[in-house]
Design a protein around this nucleic acid. Structure first.
Lengths: 123, 123
DNA sequence: TTATAGTACCTTGCGATACAAGGTATTTAG
DNA sequence: CTAAATACCTTGTATCGCAAGGTACTATAA
């Protein structure tokens, strides 16, 4: 089984949420985000991140300012707009709903296994 | 913001996991799955479900048997294969990792807001 | 018998997205 | 002046959710 692909699929949509959570804490530019997500055990690469940031900018959820750097070219520091903060609340709700659903199903599964010991009740 | 689309994106990969959790409890045919997921607050439609089941079958994670019905055409009752049960363990791990990451970021965010009260520490 | 409704399965086409790979521009070090 | 490092972005591919439409079987009613 292609576990990498499944993990990648599971991340779809989550990445957007995670990045907005990060930006809610403080402004970041691309490398900041990649580094901080890496610390949180979520890998993201440039080819994923830049289009995502551009899209959120285009949708009005993010803004950015150019900031000079002491070690290279200037950086785009992204921040959440007001619309972005509202959207983040929606994403919070979406996440809670999904987590609730998954945990509900996992609990059903555990309960089932504990009660019967095996899986034999074919209709 | 298109919340429906975001939710749809967040479900990518999760659906596969949820369906395998259900099938780990007992064999189901398509309508069973849609109904039980609906009870768990996760909507699935035919156009999503059938290709997904076919793919998991093709990958060897699911098997099925035809079963006569008293109220219509016969049904395909799907079950997890051994490979499917192994894959489910992987998906469990993937889910845990993602949930851990998201909660880590959410806690960071909460801690940040509680400590500072507002978001002003621009670099 | 034929027509209609209900059930169950499946396919096609579209939009969205993660990712690999490759490209451009700026700054600094040698 | 060149090379390396940093930072930004684009293109092409594969995958997936979903709306819409299609096929086939069964039961019921005219």
């Amino acid at each position: 089984m292609n576990t990498d692909n499944t993990k990648s699929q599971m991340r779809k949509g989550m990445l957007e949420y995670c990045i907005m959570l990060l930006l809610h804490q403080r402004p970041c530019y691309a490398n900041d985000i990649m580094q901080r997500l890496h610390e949180a055990d979520m890998i993201v690469v440039e080819g994923t991140l830049y289009p995502l940031l551009s899209r959120l900018k285009k949708d009005g959820l993010l803004g950015y300012v150019w900031q000079e750097s002491t070690q290279g070219p200037p950086r785009k520091y992204y921040t959440l707009t007001e619309d972005g903060q509202e959207a983040l609340l929606q994403l919070d709700a979406n996440w809670d709903e999904i987590a609730r659903t998954v945990n509900f199903l996992k609990n059903l599964d555990n309960k089932y296994k504990n009660n019967t010991g095996k899986i034999t009740n074919f209709p």
